[in-house]
Each structure stands twice: as C-alpha cells, then as structure tokens.
C-alpha cells in the first residue's frame, strides 16, 4: 500500500516540541474520512513513516489534521515541515472511539500529554451534538504549563460552559495558579453519574492504570471504560507483527479497546 501525497496547508505551533499540521489532499484523491480515534501513517520523503492519530473530525474538503510531538527521526522532521511541503499519507486505520454508544450518557475524557490529540475529534463531536449527551467532562494533564495543547480551544470550551474542562500540570512554573499534580487526581471530584457514564482514556500506560483505578473507586464498571493503547505500528495493515499485544494487533484490533477486554493483558509487564 503506497502513500497518497498531501500538502501542508497550515502549521500551528502548539508548544516547543508539538505542532498541528493541516494537510490538503491532492486533486482527485479518494476521500479520507476518519472516525475519532483512528490514525494515519505519515511518511516523510526518505526518512520514514510513523503512526499519528487524527486530531480533528473530517472536513468537507477532505483536509486532515494531525498533532505531532517531535520525539524521533521522523516526528522531528514532521514538526519542522513548512507550508507547501509534501507528506505521504496511508490510512485511516484502527478501531475508533465508540462515539455512537454515548447517546444519553455522561462522558468523562481523561487524557495526558499528547493523548489529548486523538480525543480532540471526540470533543468536537460531543460539542457539535451537545444536547444528545449528559454531563461531559474533560480532564487533561500536561507536564508543565508550557506543554498544554490547544490552549485557545481549551479556554473556549471551558468558557462555553457546555462541558467541564479541568487541567493540571505535573510541574508548575512561573505564574501558574492552576492545578498541580497528576491528572488522575481530578477524577475523584469530576461530575458524573457512575451508573451512566462512559470514560475515554488516553495517555501513557501508567496514567491509564491509575485513571482506571480512580474511575473504579468512583463506582464505574470497566466495561464502560475505553482506552487507547500504543505499540510499535509499522505496517498498520496487520502483518508486520510489531504491534502485537497478546493475541491482538494494535493496528487493527486497537488502538481503542474496551478496558475489560484487555484487562488481563494490561497487568502483564513487557507484553
């Protein structure tokens, strides 16, 4: 499966190592209409290819939005791209967040760091059909105040009073008067009915572990918790073997799992 060449239309710098790329499809390209939680493989000419979650609902013109943190060779090239540069795109792949099952329910979204990116389309969806859902909370943790993503949007979401938005940082700096501490601490005081809430959780595995524990302490069933996991996805089409997680392939059975389905695997180190 070879890539389709998208052009960088806009680069938005989120933090010192995170950018959001808006990509325009070539003329006549088959439409890419990803669902929230799916990912694309992004290829930088000659450097390599990485899985990056899609961080916006699809637009009418087929534009794609990807928020990327520079960590390795390919992602550092991605965050250095300029308007007009070309990116190879394969996708979308993977199982999405089950937004269709949220009707009439409370929703709590728990994210850490770049984990907010694959949940941004979920939040867009919830806001677009706000009356269809019960209480909605976004709980978001970043390393420092300078690492907060989508800052203007966070403020706008909070000020709209349509959803509860709470954020926290691991380490404070300068003139920060917000929360300090891990994001999972916000769960104990979030507003939701444990009997009719669905949780979407995305972040480092250690954060997922404590988030699930905190949600359980609030009386939630893990069958209502969904998590987005991460492994080394190379081919994205289910046969390079790198992203295996027990009997599952992250790229086709995940990255979004109902937590109780993978709970036995989650307990095992180095799986």
């Amino acid at each position: 499966m070879s890539p389709v060449w998208y052009r960088v239309h806009r680069v938005r710098r989120e933090t010192h190592d995170v950018v959001t790329l808006e990509l325009t499809p070539p003329e006549g390209a088959p439409p890419c209409s990803p669902e929230p939680g799916q990912f694309n493989m992004l290829y930088v000419f000659g450097t390599g290819e990485v899985p990056i979650s899609i961080s916006s609902l699809p637009s009418d013109r087929g534009e794609l939005v990807h928020t990327v943190r520079g960590v390795g060779a390919v992602t550092n090239k991605l965050i250095a791209l300029q308007r007009g540069d070309v990116v190879g795109v394969r996708g979308p792949f993977g199982r999405p967040w089950p937004v269709g099952e949220l009707r009439g329910r409370d929703v709590v979204v728990v994210t850490g760091g770049i984990g907010l990116a694959p949940l941004r389309p979920v939040l867009q969806h919830l806001l677009a059909h706000r009356k269809t859902f019960g209480h909605v909370s976004l709980l978001y943790g970043a390393r420092t105040p300078y690492d907060l993503l989508y800052r203007n949007e966070l403020l706008a979401w909070r000020d709209s009073r349509e959803i509860d938005v709470e954020w926290t940082v691991d380490r404070s700096s300068g003139v920060w008067n917000g929360n300090v501490g891990v994001v999972t601490r916000l769960i104990s005081r979030a507003t939701f009915d444990p009997e009719r809430v669905t949780a979407f959780v995305c972040g480092p595995e250690i954060m997922i572990k404590y988030a699930i524990e905190a949600l359980r302490n609030r009386g939630m069933a893990t069958s209502n918790c969904y998590v987005s996991m991460e492994r080394n996805m190379k081919c994205a089409v289910g046969f390079c073997g790198h992203c295996q997680y027990g009997p599952t392939f992250m790229c086709k059975d995940g990255p979004v799992f109902r937590f109780d389905h993978i709970e036995p695997l989650f307990q095992i180190r180095e799986l």
Partner: peptide
C-alpha cells in the same frame, strides 16, 4: 511473518 520496513 514479522517484517520491518526501511525507508532510504
């Protein structure tokens, strides 16, 4: 069947 890809 596990493979990797190399981009050069």
């Amino acid at each position: 069947f596990c493979t990797t890809v190399e981009d050069t």
